[in-house]
């Protein structure tokens, strides 16, 4: 499988690359400024990063131009870009959480294995509103009940507000296996 990892000038992008290695034969890291329409990959990964989805209109345009066969996986800012691209709302969140951990409450029966497991959080914005006909909320945070894991019902889009690649996340291999299984369905 070939993955295209879009870097939003983040300092965790190469951790994501390292995390993805076991399931991808090839990972191309590309800065968001260098995106061109004719790029192809089985999987497009949107990295975390500074600022908000409104600051990356070219990334929104790029994922909307992808063939429906390409899967998109968004992490943190990446998930917020997916929600924003589907006309949802991303709002400031206080108190900001950077380098902190929360337990997941998993709603999706097929992913219950991750219920109550710790995940790392780095965000001061959150997905405050999205259409439940479009996105399924797979998990929320146990302490503050924020959407943590979303899956699009029609498109091959999945997003996580937490950081599966962080050393603070308890079961990175399980998160990766779930991503891999989803990509192969």
């Amino acid at each position: 499988m070939k993955a295209l990892l879009i870097d939003h000038d983040d300092s965790f992008t190469y951790n994501l690359q390292d995390w993805l290695k076991p399931i991808c034969e090839e990972i191309e890291v590309i800065n968001h400024r260098d995106l061109q329409k004719n790029l192809h990959a089985h999987l497009v990964v949107l990295s975390p990063g500074p600022k908000s989805p409104q600051d990356y209109p070219h990334v929104v345009e790029f994922i909307q131009s992808l063939s429906p066969r390409s899967a998109v996986y968004g992490v943190c800012l990446g998930m917020q870009i997916l929600v924003h691209a589907a006309q949802g709302t991303v709002s400031p969140y206080a108190p900001a959480l950077h380098g902190k951990k929360s337990k997941l409450i998993v709603n999706a029966p097929e992913y219950k294995i991750l219920d109550n497991s710790f995940v790392a959080r780095y965000h001061s914005l959150y997905c405050s509103k999205y259409d439940s006909d479009q996105f399924e909320t797979l998990a929320t945070s146990a302490d503050d009940k924020i959407p943590m894991w979303l899956r699009h019902k029609q498109k091959r889009w999945m997003g996580v507000q937490f950081h599966p690649e962080s050393f603070l996340t308890a079961q990175p291999e399980t998160h990766l296996k779930i991503l891999n299984d989803w990509l192969r369905t």
């Binding site: 300092s11 965790f12 902190k100 603070l168």
Partner: peptide, 22 residues
Amino acid sequence: AELSMIVDLLRNDLNHVEKESS
């Protein structure tokens, strides 16, 4: 939190140095 986020950042910088290991 202050140290943890710098640990993730330095993991990133070392993972950037060398793709062949973790």
